[in-house]
Design a protein around this nucleic acid. Sequence first.
DNA 1: AGTTAACAGTTGTGTATGTAACTAACAACG
DNA 2: CGTTGTTAGTTACATACACAACTGTTAACT
Lengths: 158, 158
Amino acid sequence: MSKISISELGEAGTADEFDLQNFLPYLLNQAAEVSSLAFQKIYKDRYGMLRTEWRVLFHLGIYGRMTAKEIGDRSKMHKTKISRAVAKLAERRFLTRERDEADRRLEFLELTAAGRKAYRDLREVALEYDLELASQFSPEEAETLRRLLHKLAGNMDG
Amino acid sequence: MSKISISELGEAGTADEFDLQNFLPYLLNQAAEVSSLAFQKIYKDRYGMLRTEWRVLFHLGIYGRMTAKEIGDRSKMHKTKISRAVAKLAERRFLTRERDEADRRLEFLELTAAGRKAYRDLREVALEYDLELASQFSPEEAETLRRLLHKLAGNMDG
DNA sequence: AGTTAACAGTTGTGTATGTAACTAACAACG
DNA sequence: CGTTGTTAGTTACATACACAACTGTTAACT
């Protein structure tokens, strides 16, 4: 029922039954988009942040002081996106930058009090939101879903 | 093990264990991004298309002659994206536009021979690619994955 | 030391996107 | 009919993004 299949296709007829709704890249994108919407609205409305910005905020909130490079390695986001997100967060006093005097190419990033506050607030929202999303499923289903998604995502370090 | 949870958080300590990798919106986005990459490369390299464009192409390939409005209803894409994708596809002679004389606001869109050829080619790629993605899982797992994603996506008409 | 390569991070440029405003056509109601 | 509202589709503008080129710094090799 959910398999992707094409009916016998006469070369002339457009008798076509490709199941777009079950094509995994399409389906994954739809699910990702829909299930990001409500959370996106919150960090956008409440803090004027973009997706890249909350991600950087969360990385610093969770793992603490680190460089942009490390954020890039963990998140697989491109360095230009990170650079601009860090600039925005610094401008809004959510983080501080400190040059590494041992290797002056590096900059240590660290959340300010305001940054940690924003992080804790959004973390709380995220926890509730994740719970709400997962509540559509049985615990086993939710567990399976996360496992399969991890596999698809190519086993990010996690 | 994959549940999201926060350890006891002393108000001072940044002893933080929010599990970003298991936060569903984040995880879904990662999985969607990774699993779209190889397919994206193909429709981009081979036909210079964007995501919106192959989606429109597929809608017309699958369902046949229809208006931009109908594509919007089915795909939940915003009408401006569709408008631009249609313009690009028309410019490249992948589809034709025909005004509805009964209601002159409407335009019927239909793939040209070249458009159908591109569609069939990409459909073939998509079928193989979906199979390859799904092959990481047991048939039951793949089935479950699609079912749960449908639920998350808010049960698109599909 | 001096040249070359590698690396962290930033900036510039073209393109894509979201939002709102717009145009043209139809519908509904007096 | 004429005004008002609604709809299909396009355009304008401001923002976000990808990708390449750039700056400044460290490492590597001679």
